[in-house]
């Protein structure tokens, strides 16, 4: 197993990043996402106004992959319309399933660093936690 395909520089750096680790002022939606088997636990906060994700942040604790994934997701989705965000979330899930085209991969920007997880089934749940939580939050 090539460990650096999973723990590449983008992921290890983002796992320690504090940039998006904060509560969101005037948040319109706060949603907890949990992996019961391994204890990854994040709370995603959003301020959505006129169909745009104006601000997003997350709190909680978990493994490097779950934390990096939350951080990379917010990097990608903050400032986007809800519609765009949902499309990108679907694109992310396609990447994790290994069904993504090179053009789509480019759209995911730095979040493409999580592509290697597709080959590590035991850790997929860590990578998708934030994205599933976001999807659910946007549907609320």
């Amino acid at each position: 197993m090539d460990l650096r395909a999973i723990y590449n520089q983008v992921i290890t750096e983002n796992s320690r990043s504090k940039e998006h680790r904060h509560p969101v002022e005037g948040c319109t939606c706060s949603l907890e996402g949990v992996n019961p088997s391994c204890g990854d636990d994040i709370t995603l906060q959003l301020r959505v106004k006129d169909g745009v994700i104006e601000d997003a942040g997350f709190l909680g604790a978990g493994c490097a992959i779950s934390q990096a994934s939350a951080s990379l997701m917010i990097d990608l989705l903050k400032g986007r319309t809800v519609e765009e965000a949902k499309r990108l979330i679907d694109t992310f899930f396609k990447m994790i399933k290994g069904e993504i085209s090179p053009e789509e991969l480019e759209e995911l920007e730095d979040a493409a660093a999580l592509q290697g997880i597709a080959h590590t089934p035991a850790r997929v749940k860590c990578a998708v936690l934030a994205w599933h939580t976001m999807e659910e939050a946007l549907d609320k």
């Binding site: 197993m1 090539d2 460990l3 999973i6 723990y7 391994c38 990854d40 978990g62 493994c63 490097a64 992959i65 590590t120 035991a122 850790r123 860590c126």
Partner: peptide, 11 residues
């Protein structure tokens, strides 16, 4: 995180 430790040792 313990899961990261376990993944790194698994390699």
């Amino acid at each position: 995180h313990p899961h990261d430790v376990a993944s790194i040792l698994d390699a």
